[in-house]
Structures are given as structure tokens and as C-alpha cells.
Design a protein around this nucleic acid. Structure first.
Lengths: 225, 225
DNA sequence: AAGCGCGGACGTACGGTGTACGTTTCACGT
DNA sequence: ACGTGAAACGTACACCGTACGTCCGCGCTT
């Protein structure tokens, strides 16, 4: 009876996979080593043969998620389109793994997977003709917006969900003296279209970048191709 | 012996205060009801007379922190300066309570304190002459950047701290084929000046907003003053 | 083929966590 | 003086992360 219970062999990959699935299904605070073990039909301590501790597991989750970034190559397009595609790729994984995003944003990703998007952003800024310092700052500004847009969106959804529970009475209780604009813009605030909101801010940044000084064109950037 | 042990009376405010202090001193994951109770020299369950559960306590922490936002009035300045001041105010509290920021970003703030910055942002967008929809989107874009810049900064610091531990060998192990720009821009990436990085992105957004279409000047905005 | 080593799965156990519940204490209105 | 209600408290339970020791089965050496 060698293959009596042919379980597919416990692996760090399978553990991380199960953790991601569990988080997406029940939320990040529902993740525990015991729950993951149960998910894999395995004893708790068996996990520790492949993962040193829970923090490392969470780092693995973060890494797995950022690996999902689809940065297509397509060298034909402009740097503007490339930058848009990159930021949109970030948004896409954030949309695919919404509940894992908290983990990604609060844990380091020290593998090559974490650096790949940065490399891409710097390459784009270089292609746009920015000097080194501006390139780095551009990358940081775009990353900041990509992150913040997502955090703001999920925070807003949580807020709206809470408001939906308590009913619309909360809005009516607002002091018109203190919050005239919030009340006046109520319709626009309530009808939120995350997609176009996101594109609005992205357009702002790209437009501002286009107005920045750049070196002529086709020049000594460090890129190899 | 009525005033034998004259403890200053347990209060929701004192509990939240202690939680904030504990988080800033030892990190968010060090916060537990027992630790807070010990901090206040009180039995654990006594806390539950003033706070329904730990989540509510964390929401209280988040609320307390956003209440720290200093949005000075100063009606004389331009909307550009007002917007800068608002985003900088956000950055200031994030700098004053860095370890509480995680809590703020992952918990709802459903009191008036949470709406006050939003009201201010909408008022500024209105003063700038944007229509309602653009005003809301402007507010969201600025908020996204403010949040993201901070999250990115603390994430980067964590990363750099980790790199400092493992030494510079990590950089030398980078594949020059895959990460030419990361390697070439190493100096700019290592020497990070969060302040000017932050201002760079903020300038981008403000500049882009200035280029947006606006209604003439002095018009029917919903603001009262 | 026989023996052995070793990695991986497992069970137990410990200290810590959030919190439900019942009990005690004590200031205060009557 | 006495009842009353709020608040502090202690106990208890289920769950958590994980240190440690045990045990089994595969693969290598002889």
C-alpha cells in the first residue's frame, strides 16, 4: 500500500496557493496556520517544514500576487501608453486579489518579482527622455498613485457598505453648515465609477509628465533594448 | 477610604489614547486588549465597558488619528496652495503616527472627523472652478496620491531596512540583463528624499489640474463662504 | 538484499489572544 | 437606610502561533 492515500505532496507553492485562496474567500483576518493546514488536509506543524513562520507565508502571498502582474512587452507603443498599461496592470491584480492587497502593501517583496515592475517603470521613464533623478521620481509618483487609488477605492467601498447597512439616514444627519459641499455633491459621491475615477487621475499624471523637460530623443539611456 | 486609589477613571478616550501610544511605541501587531489594559493598570474586561470589541477600538484609533489633521482655514490663499496644504496636512499626520497609518487605511471612519478633509477638498475644487463631477474626481485623485505616497514610503523604508540587514550583496546579485535600469539608477533609488519625492508628485497633480477647463470665476458653487 | 540515515509528516504542549458570562463593589437617588 | 444600576473584575473557553520530540518511509551505501 504505497499509494494508498495519494496526496499531491505538500509544497511551499501549494501552501501559498491555499493561503491566497483562503484570504480571497474569507478575508485576511481569517487566515491562520490551522485553517491553511485544514484546507490542505494536513497537520498544522507540517506547514513549518516548508515555511519558517506565518510572516514568511504572508510574504509568500505578497510575492505570489505581484508575480501576477501582466506587463506585456509590446515595444511599439509610446511611453505614455506603456506607463498607462503598467499602472493598469497593477490595478488589474488589485482587482483580481482585492483582499490580498492589504498583505501586499504591508509586507516586503524582496525577490526579483518585486523589482520587475520597477524596472519596467524606469525603462519607460528613460524611454520618455527623463534624466535619472526625474525617472526615479516619476516611477515613485506613478506607483504612489497606483497604490493609493486602490487603497482609497476599497476603503470607500467599505464605507459605502457600512452606509448601506445603516440606511440613508446618516446623510440626512449631516450638518449643512459644516458639510455644504459634501451634501451638494452627494450624487457624484454616491455614484462612484472606480474605473473612470482611476483613469481620471492617471490622465492627470501622464499629462503632467508630458509637460516635463526631456532630453531630445533616442539617447544614452542605460537600457539595453 | 473613598480616594484610596485615585485612578483617573477609565474612559473610552483614555483607552484609545493608550492604544495609539502603544501602537506607536511597539507596532500595530503588539496591540492587544491585555496590553492596553496593563498599560492603564486595569483588568482586561473593564475595557469592554467602554469599547464593544477590538475592531471598534481600532476604529477609534483611526478616528483619533484623522482628527489630528490640521486643516488651517486661511481663506486668502489660492486653491493651489490650499490643495497643497491639505495634502501636506495628511502627510504630516502620517509622519506623526506612522505605525497607526495601517490602522487608518484598513478601518472605516464613519464620524464627522472623517468627512471634514473631504469637505475641505471639495470646497477647494469648487473654488478652483471645477464642475461637480470634476471636483469629486479631483478630490479622489489627490486623496489617492496622498495615501499612496505614504504607503509607498513606509513600504520602501521596510525594504531598505531589510536590504541594510542583508548587506549590499543583494544589489550585486541582480541580473544585469533583466534589471539594467534598476542597476543604473541605483544611486537615485538608494538616496531617497521622501519630502521632495512627495512634492514632485504633488506638483505634477496640481499642474495638471491647472490645465483643466474651469468655469470663469466667482460662480454658483454650493459653498456658503 | 540488508542496513542505515534523513527529511518530512505528525502529536503534544505552552503561552498568548479576543471575549462571553457571572460576580462583586460602590456611588447615588430615594 | 436601602435598593439600584453602572462599572470593575475573575473565570473560562475556543482559538492562535510555534517549540519540541516522535515516528515513518524513501533512497543510498555496502
Amino acid at each position: 500500500m504505497t499509494s494508498d492515500t495519494p496526496r499531491p505532496a505538500l509544497t511551499r507553492d501549494r501552501i501559498v496557493q491555499a493561503a491566497v485562496a483562503l484570504i480571497e474567500r474569507e478575508g485576511a483576518e481569517a487566515l491562520s496556520m490551522r485553517r491553511v493546514a485544514a484546507e490542505l488536509d494536513v497537520a498544522v506543524m507540517s506547514l513549518y517544514n516548508h515555511v519558517p513562520n506565518k510572516t514568511a507565508l504572508l510574504e509568500g502571498v505578497a510575492e505570489r500576487v505581484v508575480e501576477g502582474l501582466e506587463l506585456g512587452d509590446d515595444p511599439g507603443r509610446s511611453w505614455q501608453e506603456g506607463a498607462r498599461a503598467l499602472v493598469r496592470a497593477f490595478r488589474k491584480v488589485a482587482h483580481d486579489y482585492p483582499r490580498c492587497m492589504t498583505i501586499v502593501l504591508t509586507h516586503k517583496v524582496d525577490t526579483a518579482a518585486g523589482l520587475r515592475p520597477m524596472e519596467r517603470a524606469l525603462a519607460l521613464a528613460d524611454a520618455a527622455g527623463f534624466d535619472a533623478e526625474t525617472a526615479v521620481r516619476t516611477m515613485r509618483a506613478l506607483l504612489a498613485y497606483a497604490i493609493g487609488a486602490q487603497v482609497r477605492e476599497v476603503g470607500m467601498e467599505k464605507m459605502l457598505g457600512h452606509l448601506a447597512e445603516t440606511g440613508a439616514e446618516s446623510w440626512n444627519r449631516l450638518d449643512p453648515e459644516e458639510f455644504p459641499h459634501v451634501i451638494a455633491y452627494g450624487p457624484q459621491l454616491a455614484a462612484h465609477d472606480p474605473e473612470s475615477d482611476f483613469e481620471f487621475g492617471l490622465d492627470l499624471l501622464i499629462a503632467a509628465l508630458e509637460a516635463l523637460p526631456r532630453r531630445p530623443a533616442g539617447k544614452p539611456g542605460p537600457g539595453t533594448g
